[in-house]
């Protein structure tokens, strides 16, 4: 993976209203290149809304969103799509495309500047990157949930965008593929990309992510390292569960306990 642009992604005071309901309230945060950030929070906390806002799917009511020095909304749609790749929580393919063709859709923002053969080659590489090279020719409607998710992940990665945003990327995956997935994102961040994931699994978040944003009722409840955010008191307040955060062999570990 070459020519990675390293861009800091800043949002200041974002608010968003959807269906007459305020879903985001005054969110300010920064996402730095090389960092893997997890957005966590209970159901309905606004994780998907924040990610959608960051990816340019929803236009924020107020607030500012900057990528590097530039204001995100002023960038032309195609270029924005080249800078930022996004995988929604659910993405049902309408047609029974071959997996490789579906992955190639991730290169649409580049239009004709990438020729057809190069598109096919890069799609195959992306599939191999997520351990799905063998699925290349399979129609996507015949894949299992986990296989499909990996193909979609390849679609996210294929454009080599400097900013990766994925909403619950591991939801349908078995534990092995979840770990593999997190490792893939870790590697992407290590090459200097900005990676933002919405996660439900706080254990994975604690283990792999550099930073955690905790959302609660549309507001930012805390942000910082896993150790700073996932304190038992705060987790108890937001999720209503007992929990423990500890270090084991130099690695952070989050363990969920009983209901409060």
């Amino acid at each position: 993976m070459s020519d990675v642009q390293s861009l800091e992604f800043n949002c200041r005071d974002l608010t968003l209203t959807r269906n007459h309901r305020r879903v985001l309230e005054g969110i300010s945060c920064a996402f730095r290149p090389g960092e893997l950030t997890a957005v966590i929070g209970p159901n309905g906390a606004g994780k998907s809304s924040l990610l959608g806002c960051l990816a340019g799917i929803y236009a924020a009511d107020t607030g500012q969103l900057c990528i590097g020095e530039r204001e995100f909304n002023r960038i032309a749609a195609a270029e924005r799509a080249q800078l930022c790749a996004y995988l929604p929580q659910q993405e049902a393919p309408a047609w029974s495309l071959a997996a490789q063709d579906l992955v190639a859709l991730g290169l649409l923002p580049w239009g004709r500047s990438i020729d057809r053969a190069a598109k096919a080659r890069r799609s195959l590489l992306a599939l191999q990157q997520v351990d799905a090279g063998h699925l290349a020719a399979r129609p996507v409607t015949q894949l299992s949930g986990g296989e499909l998710r990996r193909v979609q992940l390849a679609r996210l990665l294929v454009g080599d965008a400097p900013l990766l945003i994925a909403d619950e990327p591991g939801a349908a995956l078995d534990i092995r593929h979840q770990l593999q997935l997190m490792q893939t994102f870790r590697q992407q961040a290590d090459t200097g990309k900005t990676v933002i994931l919405a996660l439900h699994d706080l254990g994975l978040a604690a283990r792999y992510c550099d930073r955690i944003l905790l959302l609660h009722n549309g507001s930012l409840a805390a942000q910082g390292s896993a150790e700073e955010v996932l304190t038992p008191a705060r987790v108890g307040e937001v999720y209503g569960i007992h929990s423990e955060f500890r270090w084991r062999d130099g690695r952070p570990e989050f363990v969920a306990g009983d209901l409060l």
Binding site: A81, Y86, P88, E91, W95, L105
Partner: peptide, 12 residues
Amino acid sequence: LSLGETSAASLG
């Protein structure tokens, strides 16, 4: 649009 409206929007 094969990927849905949201993904289409994210693709520019």
